[in-house]
Amino acid sequence: MHAIRIAFYLTGLLILSFGVTLTIKSDLGAGPWDALNVGLSTTIGLTVGSWVIIVGLILIVINALLLQEKPDVFAIFTILIVGGLIDFWLLYVLNQFDPTGLLFKIIVLMLGLIFLSLGIAIYLQAKYPLIPIDRFMLAIQHRLKVNLMVAKTIAEITALILALLFKGPIGIGTIIIALSVGPLVQLFFPPLERLRKKWS
């Protein structure tokens, strides 16, 4: 049972990070949080994956304060894996990949969106602690007593404002990703849940 959960967890993070990398490479705008990490990397230095880890650590502390509970230590492993994988894809696998032409960029963005959403739906099957970004949404919901959609919107707008401040890659892709990830995860989740239960 644990082996299956770990397999879903690691596979999901691998696919998720590949999707994030494709959205960045599309040059049409990354998701708000990924745009923030790219902006921080460009403005201050360090790799995008390093900023995934740093921002994740900051969010773990913020989430603990908002939820009035101990920091989610296990989530540190998640952000270390995701940060490392994003740098792996960006620096070693797709470092020479530079889509040209609007149609090709749109295809890359759409593929990135699909992989990103699929990866989230897979990693959620493991029932392990959430990525700090997802936990932040729940912490906002708890603190402000709003529904999940409002909490997600607040979290995404927060990241978007910060990404703009640090000159992150904001574009039409950012809006598409922000609006589409939730529905796509909802689409992928049920069949993956059935698959996990079958294998368990």
Rank of each mutant, 00 (worst) to 15 (best):
V146G: 01
F166T: 02
A155T: 00
D98W: 06
A75E: 10
Q141T: 12
I24D: 04
G29Y: 10
I177S: 04
S17W: 01
T43F: 13
T42Y: 13
A121P: 07
L162A: 12
I54M: 13
A30Y: 06
G173A: 11
T23D: 12
K70A: 07
L85H: 02
N95M: 01
V20A: 13
G19A: 04
T158H: 05
L57C: 12
Q68Y: 09
D87A: 06
T158E: 03
V48K: 04
I54Y: 01
L111V: 11
G56V: 00
R5Q: 09
M110T: 14
G84A: 03
I6M: 15
M110E: 08
S200K: 11
I177V: 14
A155Q: 07
L57H: 01
F77T: 06
L66K: 11
W199T: 13
I81S: 02
A7T: 15
A159H: 05
G171F: 04
V150S: 06
Q96F: 12
L164K: 15
K127T: 13
D72R: 06
L109F: 08
P129C: 12
L195I: 11
L67S: 06
A151Y: 02
K105E: 09
G39I: 05
F189L: 15
S200M: 15
G182S: 03
L160W: 12
L65H: 10
R194T: 11
R143T: 02
G45R: 00
G168Q: 04
M110I: 14
D87E: 10
N95A: 02
T43H: 01
L118E: 05
I154W: 15
D87G: 02
L187Y: 13
L85E: 08
A139G: 00
L94G: 14
I107T: 03
T100D: 10
V20D: 03
K70T: 04
P32A: 15
L57V: 02
L67T: 11
K25T: 06
K167I: 13
H2T: 14
S50R: 08
A7L: 15
L59D: 04
D72E: 15
A139D: 00
L148C: 07
L14V: 05
A163L: 10
K197M: 10
G29L: 13
L164I: 14
L28P: 09
G56H: 04
V108L: 09
P183W: 01
L80H: 09
R135F: 10
L28Q: 08
G31T: 07
L124C: 01
P132K: 00
V82N: 10
L10Y: 13
Y123M: 08
G171I: 10
A139N: 00
I157Y: 01
